[in-house]
């Protein structure tokens, strides 16, 4: 009797393994549809990040061009001050986004896009800080003002 129950258990186990094996052979971990969905999500992420990076680079150029405007009045300076505050706020949000990409980056996904995004952020910070220096800090330094005066006499 005991022998029969052993046999039945072996057959049951064999049957379970065989069925499971057959099923797994037909459906790998990710089927084609799932894999395509996964790759699409990566491509969407890369595309979105590249667009965001491009926008930041455009901001950098536009902020740089503001330093070539002459005779800025009080209202323009106030608006520029608002722009600088808003740029600082944007940078804080974006750098948080960058930090949250650490996991993705460590897996080697969208490495170049993330690197370029970080570089755009660094340059963005540099641009608004330079604008702030140019409009508000350097003109408050007496030495700096005096040098500008004297240089205007150099031919």
């Amino acid at each position: 009797m005991e022998c029969l129950s052993h046999k039945s258990e072996i057959i049951n186990t064999f049957s379970s393994v065989r069925n499971f094996s057959f099923k797994e052979k037909q459906s790998p971990l990710l089927d084609e549809e799932q894999m395509n969905g996964f790759l699409d999500a990566i491509l969407d992420f890369k595309k979105g990040l590249t667009e965001k990076t491009q926008t930041i680079y455009e901001f950098n150029d536009r902020i740089e061009r503001l330093t070539w405007f002459n005779d800025l009045d009080e209202e323009c300076l106030m608006l520029s001050n608002d722009l600088i505050s808003s740029a600082k706020d944007l940078w804080s949000s974006l750098i948080r986004q960058y930090v949250s990409m650490n996991f993705i980056r460590s897996k080697g996904i969208a490495k170049n896009e993330i690197k370029d995004f970080k570089n755009a952020l660094d340059e963005f910070k540099e641009s608004y800080m330079d604008l702030e220096s140019t409009l508000f800090f350097l003109p408050e330094m007496p030495d700096f003002i005096e040098t500008t005066k004297q240089l205007s006499l150099v031919r």
């Binding site: 740089e64 330093t67 070539w68 002459n70 370029d116 570089n119 755009a120 340059e123 641009s127 330079d130 604008l131 220096s133 140019t134 409009l135 350097l138 003109p139 700096f144 500008t148 240089l151 205007s152 150099v154």
Partner: peptide, 24 residues
């Protein structure tokens, strides 16, 4: 050559900071 960040707002003698070789 009048491109980049003009640090001194001067029309005759601009003091310029320029980024070279693009990113980085």
């Amino acid at each position: 050559l009048c491109s980049g960040t003009r640090l001194n707002l001067s029309e005759d003698a601009p003091y310029i900071k320029k980024r070279l070789k693009g990113r980085g």
